[in-house]
Amino acid sequence: MARGARGDEVAFQALVERWERPVFAFLVRMLGSREEAQDVGQETFLRLCREAERYQPRGQFRSWLFRIAGNLARTRLRRRKIIRWVTFERSVHDRPAPGPPVGEELEREERRTLLNRALAELPARQRETLLLRHDLGMSQREIAAALGTSESAVESLLQRALGTLRRKLRSLETERAS
């Protein structure tokens, strides 16, 4: 990052190639659209390169990166005036589909779809917190830095997000069973 701040393009390129995949995956789940995730991902790295001089080496790079990505994603959601995903099906993932799932795999596939739908219905801030925690495995301290809030606020956000997620999942399972 320090090399990038001095205008070293090779360093920036390595940085983008190292992080584009997790940033893209995060944005797909935030926005529910691969095209928009691509746009916002590019914008994230552009912002990162432009603001490289402001980066504090003692801070967590990952928190800084996902703070930019999260802010841009929420701005995009506000612009769309849609706070929830409309659909979030299997197609947003790159998982190979060699054939129709059967048995246990079918069950897992359905649960995965339910999880994605339930996630999609969470408020953006709660969804972002859950993704940072469980998709990216960030500590609460890192999430607090990424969201610009305190660790206790993160704990509270996570608890609310999980409560909402469980309720949504129950409701979707009931809907599926009926």
Binding site: F24, Q38, Q42, V92, D94, R95
Partner: peptide, 21 residues
């Protein structure tokens, strides 16, 4: 959550970022 593998971007992002920079 754990088994949801990160998706690959639709296109490599660096060429676009580089051009804009």
């Amino acid at each position: 959550f754990a088994e949801s593998e990160p998706s690959a971007p639709l296109r490599p992002m660096w060429p676009h970022v580089q051009a804009r920079l």
